[in-house]
């Protein structure tokens, strides 16, 4: 199983598949009249457009770091290829310093580093940029788990009601009654630690909110005349769900996806701090922030890893939150 996912072409194919799927969803959504109206509004929303562009840059960088090709007896990502000439030092060095960070025995560096280097001598700037991959993979995999699950169960519960609704409500009440962080920790410590496990855990806890939202909206929508009309025309349940209900709740899914993504990026940092997050060795903002615990008590203080990771993470999360808000405004029928 893991051997299959370790293969180069599988990873690259998954990347294209993910982006393709997302693009297909947006394109199919844009045929909807409500989406077109929201799109027009969004184009005039400066905060929304700027934050959307920033998110696109992060995603692009993350995708380029995920996209790998064979290079000199190994593989290298596109971003890694750009940084191929950046030398690896022996230990910490300050931004643009000429020697390693040491008061007693400073060694000359092989090159200059814009944001310094970390404990293993890796360039902080490169590591910060490469960490986009972790955010992208975590967000992508988790969303691929919880979005279909939450949407499907929500629609089924809201459309069929009665015993289907009872069962689904029972299941999400059980999951929701465990405080989220406890359930996350419980799932991760019994499975093997890693990005995939983190995605599974976050997916298991994440679908509840979406399911509740979609269930309510589906209930509201199925009272509307167009659903009654579809039923009167003798359309099958499946067709009513996919052709009539799904397009009318998809905008909620999109907003939830964007805002949920920001929560996932923050959760990675918190879980990594608690020792159940990204495995050591991955380029991740969570690990860089976690490392600050020992770095800040050093003399002289190593502040650049923490600062770089914080700003990179803050930029992405803030943009996602602002963009999610802009989407919500754009889709709000009560606006203006």
């Amino acid at each position: 199983m893991s051997g299959f996912f370790d293969q180069l072409w599988v990873q690259n194919a998954l990347l294209f598949l993910g982006f393709g799927l997302f693009a297909a969803l947006i394109v199919s959504g844009s045929r909807n009249e409500r989406w077109q109206r929201a799109g027009r509004y969004l184009r005039g929303d400066r905060t929304g457009m700027v934050s959307g562009a920033i998110i696109a840059i992060y995603l692009l960088v993350g995708a380029l770091e995920t996209l790998q090709f064979p290079y000199q007896n190994g593989t290298v990502s596109v971003i890694g290829w750009f940084f191929r000439n950046v030398p690896i030092e022996s230990t910490y060095s300050a931004p643009l310093a000429a020697t390693t960070l040491s008061t007693s025995d400073p060694q000359p560096l092989k090159g200059r580093h814009l944001l310094g280097t970390d404990a293993l001598g890796k360039d902080t700037f490169a590591q910060t940029i490469r960490a986009c991959r972790t955010a992208l993979i975590l967000g992508g995999f988790t969303s691929a788990i919880y979005i279909p699950l939450g949407t499907l169960l929500g629609i089924l519960a809201g459309y069929y009601r009665r015993w289907v609704d009872d069962i689904i409500q029972y299941v999400y009440s059980v999951v929701a009654s465990v405080p989220e962080i406890l359930l996350l920790v419980a799932i991760i410590i019994v499975l093997e630690k890693g990005l995939g496990t983190m995605s599974i855990a976050l997916g298991t806890t994440g679908w509840v909110g979406l399911c509740r939202l979609i269930r309510g909206e589906t209930m509201r929508q199925s009272e509307r005349p167009y659903v009654a009309a579809a039923r009167a025309l003798g359309q099958s349940h499946w067709r009513i769900i996919t052709r009539h209900l799904l397009p009318n709740v998809m905008h909620l899914v999109l907003i939830n996806f964007v805002l949920g993504f920001s929560g996932l990026v923050l959760a990675e940092a918190t879980l990594t701090y608690l020792g159940v997050g990204s495995p050591i060795g991955t380029a991740s903002w969570g690990i860089m922030i976690d490392g600050a615990r020992s770095e800040l008590s050093r003399e002289p203080v190593v502040w650049w890893n923490l600062t770089a990771a914080t700003f990179a993470l803050f930029g992405l999360v803030l943009s996602l939150n602002l963009f999610g808000d802009a989407l919500r405004r754009a889709f709000d029928p009560k606006r203006g």
């Binding site: 920001s262 923050l266 940092a269 918190t270 701090y273 922030i289 976690d290 600050a292 615990r293 800040l296 923490l306 914080t310 993470l313 803050f314 999360v317 803030l318 939150n321 602002l322 808000d325």
Partner: peptide
């Protein structure tokens, strides 16, 4: 308020402590 909630909680703690 959006900016405040976009900062990972550890950063507040690290800042406060350090």
């Amino acid at each position: 308020s959006i900016a405040l909630m976009s900062v990972p909680p550890m950063i507040y703690i690290i800042f406060g402590q350090a």
